[in-house]
Design a protein around this nucleic acid. Structure first.
Lengths: 134, 134
DNA sequence: TATTACTTTATAATCGTTCTAAATACGGAA
DNA sequence: TTCCGTATTTAGAACGATTATAAAGTAATA
């Protein structure tokens, strides 16, 4: 069984078909989908899958530390099944999000009393696809 | 006259009372307000100020390079009149956003063909106020 | 002061996300 | 197996931030 599903089960969550489908869709997915993308992708095979279920499952996975929620786009959350430490690059023209493997970051904001739990860096710019051609 | 207003005028924008009020509110403001905060703050003095005008003005200022739009919170944009290079720390408990003066970042995402225009780093964690006494 | 293009306004529309209450079904126990 | 309790799913409504619309208003120039 999938490692993420095993972890969910271990934590006492029920393995419903919807959860298995969503986890399966995320597994190895490097497209950084938003909730709507996941729902749209699974709807053909699961016609009654509710958007609320997608949101619930994503929240469960994030809470379990099995999924990252990204605040990269202005208007929606994107999700990344790769929970290892890395950054992201976002094309401001097409909106695509790329993984960036960079060196570890300082975990100190230099603010008195502020305890850092997570550091997120985003490189905004124009991707190769959008930039070529002028 | 305020430097930001002068810049707006220089670019051919009209100096309306609404724009002057919004720019005035932002001047030196380190609270990183959202559009609704700005609207709420100015409403007593400008009872007919429309939320749409706030959004329009913020868009104008961002486009003119006189204001930064932050994607720090999950559900809204926050604005920072300090357009110099710096980062932000966000308390995941109270939502407050702090300025972080850190060293310059690499402007290279290491992705073939990706031209970086902006690098944004956010430190998430618990601020001194929320963490004391946990 | 007259003109005109730019702005503002109120309101509706849109979109992502969250909430609700009822129906459903997983998974342990009998 | 079947039963049961409870976690989960569902459809739809509700919500909040943002954007679009179209009419009314006004800054800036001549």
């Amino acid at each position: 069984m999938n490692e993420r599903l095993a972890a969910l089960k271990r934590m006492g969550f029920k393995l419903t078909p919807q959860r298995m489908a969503i986890v399966g869709y995320l597994e190895g997915n490097e497209s950084h989908p938003a909730a709507g993308d996941i729902h749209r992708a699974l709807l053909p095979e699961y016609p009654t899958l509710s958007l609320a279920t997608v949101y619930n499952t994503l929240e469960t996975l994030v809470g379990a530390g099995l999924l990252l929620e990204l605040s990269v786009a202005r208007d929606r959350s994107n999700y990344d099944p790769d929970v290892s430490s890395h950054s992201h690059a976002c094309c401001t023209r097409c909106g695509r999000i790329f993984d960036v493997r960079d060196s570890a970051q300082t975990a100190d904001a230099g603010i008195e009393g502020f305890r850092v739990t997570d550091v997120r860096t985003v490189y905004y710019g124009i991707c190769g696809n959008c930039g070529s051609g002028h």
